[in-house]
């Protein structure tokens, strides 16, 4: 299994996958936007404002998935000293931060027509804002620390705290009375979103996941080259 975590092995494969991804990401994003803005129906309460959901929800999901993956990798690196895990989390963190900001921004834009306010200090919104701070601290944690062991310690510590925040984000709508609606889509029960709205949502999620994969692979190559250069200098 560890053969597949070997940076040189992954470096060769990433080059091939990158070439394919570069060509398919843009058309899928365009299809997703067309479905979201023109094809999907209007919500009977929210009207056209519901279209913001197609960008807000996938962004929020990706930012949460990224942090969960980062935390897992940072803890793995701290416990078992798997150096390639650092390459993975360094490549994932900027993507997660970007999508976290997008989720907060689009959430504010969605909040104004539906709740009548851009921002409220409610549990879900605040915990998402805290997640963005965790991302920033995490990125600073490895960028500003030259010592790899200390960096691993800092990153794993932030990850553990961030994981607690992830649980808070997930259950914030159930634990506290919030403006934010409870989740409509779950892996374990039937979705309350109609299929005509679910399809554009899945297309946008798929498009943004492909985009994330593209950036991740590019960042991974950058980090691998940096490590190679550093080892050549040493």
């Amino acid at each position: 299994m560890f053969k597949y975590l070997n940076p040189s092995y992954i470096f060769t494969i990433t080059g091939k996958i990158l070439n394919v991804l570069k060509f398919i990401v843009t058309p899928i994003i365009i299809i997703g936007v067309i479905f979201s803005v023109f094809v999907s129906p209007i919500d009977y309460i929210q009207g056209d404002a519901v279209r913001i959901m197609y960008i807000h929800v996938p962004s929020a999901w990706i930012s949460l998935i990224c942090f969960a993956a980062i935390s897992f990798l940072a803890i793995l690196n701290f416990l078992f000293k798997i150096k390639s895990a650092t390459l993975f989390y360094k490549s994932l963190a900027p993507i997660g931060l970007t999508f976290c900001f997008i989720a907060i921004f689009t959430g504010a834009l969605w909040g104004q027509p539906t709740w009548g306010t851009w921002w409220a200090w409610d549990a879900r919104l605040t915990s998402m804002l805290i997640l963005s701070f965790f991302y920033i601290i995490f990125i600073c944690g490895y960028k500003l620390t030259s010592n790899s062991e200390r960096s691993a310690k800092i990153c794993s510590f932030i990850s553990v705290l961030g994981l607690i925040n992830l649980i808070i984000i997930k259950y914030s709508v159930s634990w506290w009375p919030t403006l934010h609606q409870p989740s409509s889509i779950s892996l374990f029960r039937e979705s309350t979103v109609h299929l005509s709205m679910l399809i554009p949502l899945i297309i946008m999620l798929f498009a943004l996941l492909l985009y994330s994969a593209l950036i991740f692979l590019m960042k991974y190559r950058i980090e691998t080259i940096r490590v190679k250069k550093k080892s050549l200098k040493d």
Partner: peptide, 8 residues
């Protein structure tokens, strides 16, 4: 609200 949420 919708257009900036896609464009940005």
């Amino acid at each position: 609200f919708v257009w900036p949420s896609f464009i940005f």
